[in-house]
Design a protein around this nucleic acid. Sequence first.
DNA 1: AAGTGGTCTAGACCACTCT
DNA 2: GAGTGGTCTAGACCACTTG
Lengths: 251, 251
Amino acid sequence: MGAAPGFLAPADGVARWARLAGGWRERIVAGHWPAGEAIPPESELAREAGVALGTARQALSALVAEGLLERVHGRGTFVTRGLAQASMLRFFRFGPAAHPDGSPDPVPRSRILERRPLRPSPEQARRLGLAAGARVLRVRRVRRLEARPVLLETLWLPLPVFEPLAVLAPAEWDELLYPMYSRRCRVTIVRAADELSFGTLDAARAAALGLEPGAPAVCVEREAFDLAGRCVELRTTYGDARDFRYRAEIR
Amino acid sequence: MGAAPGFLAPADGVARWARLAGGWRERIVAGHWPAGEAIPPESELAREAGVALGTARQALSALVAEGLLERVHGRGTFVTRGLAQASMLRFFRFGPAAHPDGSPDPVPRSRILERRPLRPSPEQARRLGLAAGARVLRVRRVRRLEARPVLLETLWLPLPVFEPLAVLAPAEWDELLYPMYSRRCRVTIVRAADELSFGTLDAARAAALGLEPGAPAVCVEREAFDLAGRCVELRTTYGDARDFRYRAEIR
DNA sequence: AAGTGGTCTAGACCACTCT
DNA sequence: GAGTGGTCTAGACCACTTG
């Protein structure tokens, strides 16, 4: 009676809560439990799984720690809506009005310079986990803060998935990309990794940012990941190095 | 029978595990439970506190999450020794041999350029939480990687506490400062915050790093905190911006 | 008032480490 | 084998949110 599906065998070295978490993670990734909605209550999950409440709670805690779930006391447990405030602005301090923790982040205005499907470089295909022959949507845009261009961005988005953005009118684009990915393409971004480096701007990039050629710039290369942990966005952002300011916490 | 000391009153809105964690945090901060040593076993802590094992474990988990404790299955629960690998090198990629995750970090050689007690600036005194008239030890040093100077550092350390370093022979200084703080001054660094910005080097700093004046540089301003959460180290580090490379994870 | 997650108990047994 | 932390149970009751 050990291998019957649905029955809890003594487990092959994996704790019961970890196996439960695995199953529930699959439901989230598959969209069986949709983003932003409540999952069944702990009591029901425990009963269904045939485990004690504490065991179910431990499994849920693991998924909360992973960022897939959020608990709200008295209301329920919800599938994450993903990242919203992951703006590149967090790497820079523009203008006279810094926002000393309390005032809302000033949202920039974006203008799309270019948007077209093309073949990714081998390196890009590898990072996006794409098969040979796959296509991506490349988007270039400038982000302005009170009329001043401050960030120059290029995005690469795998194409079957992000097709809705290939045909969406530029005026319909939201300022916050990740909520838009969620609504238009059913892609939830839950994690991102930014690689920062320093360089100088070539003539074209400098012109787009209203700076002199050779101006010092910070380059941010981002990989963003969905619920399943797949890399689904590559992004390169340039900004004036003299506006660069970033706080890194250790531990 | 509610207010008797040692007896567990229903708590004034604070969970029992949170109150236990508070008491144990005090023991750690006070050095009653010394850094690196094991604390009493969970079973004993629970019995002493008059709570169930699960409650004691929840309190311990909170302290582990804070970074004050570390659990080792089968061996015990230990007070943290603090940060060790918080080197400024993590912000840079020097030389031909990158270390692609696996090879040990190449430890640089340091040379102390200056070391002397002085009065901190008002801003420094504020950040270190020092009273008027307090003194700090200022230390300047260059860090070399295979004979090449790569980092220029200035440290400010509050003086009654760091007195041992004021008289310690420069040759006796360790490469890793935080373990040395722990051994020589009984100060455990558990957290640090680094503020990154970009600028150019003045003539003196450029000379110390073997670069041309006006060379692009990354400036790292660090605040480091002890077990009690007090800021006990200020540090400013300069390095060639062209060697700068840093990975920031979101969520 | 009903339903949710959060706290807490008093055990039992398992997995790991060290002697 | 003794001692440690890790898992799990089957409850009870509390705190918060909503209708």
